[in-house]
């Protein structure tokens, strides 16, 4: 289970709407516990994929990840996952997403339809890397 407050989700969606018609992305900062993970904050990042392909690709560099880990540590949190958008496309992971995925991280994918965030879902890579399981995304107050 992945818990996220409505205002944090709204901040995530606003970043992805601003990136439209390209894909946007960023990091989920939060805490992991026995009952699941809680997103405490999002770290919106620039899409580093080559510009012409950003309509269907995103990239966060190792330098982005290091910066994210430092920012998380500063706040007493961990990087617990990644968020990205699928512009005008279902919020389901692609084969390309899976090739690049790590276990344990929560992957929020948001459909952005005609510039507006329409639906967000969260996914976890299976241990054997064969597919994803959907992780319930729960709104907290």
């Amino acid at each position: 289970m992945l818990t996220i407050a409505a205002d944090v989700l709204r901040e995530l969606e606003a970043h992805l709407e601003a990136a439209y018609p390209n894909e946007g992305a960023g990091l989920l900062l939060g805490e992991a516990g026995a009952g699941g993970k809680r997103v405490a904050a999002v770290l919106p990042l620039a899409n580093r994929w080559d510009g012409a392909e950003q309509y269907h690709r995103f990239l966060l560099t190792p330098e982005d990840m290091l910066r994210g880990e430092q920012e998380a540590a500063r706040r007493g949190l961990d990087v617990i996952g990644i968020f990205h958008s699928h512009p005008d496309h279902p919020a389901e992971p692609s084969g390309f997403d899976r090739d690049w995925a790590l276990p344990w991280y929560s992957y929020i994918i948001t459909t952005v339809e005609r510039g507006r965030a329409a639906r967000s879902r969260s996914w976890l890579l299976k241990e054997d890397r064969s597919a994803y399981d959907e992780e319930p995304l729960v709104m907290a107050r």
């Binding site: 560099t61 982005d64 990840m65 990644i82 496309h89 992971p93 692609s94 997403d97 690049w100």
Partner: peptide, 10 residues
């Protein structure tokens, strides 16, 4: 070991 993260709809 530092991951980079990529993805996209297809």
């Amino acid at each position: 070991i530092v991951p980079s993260i990529a993805g996209g709809r297809r």
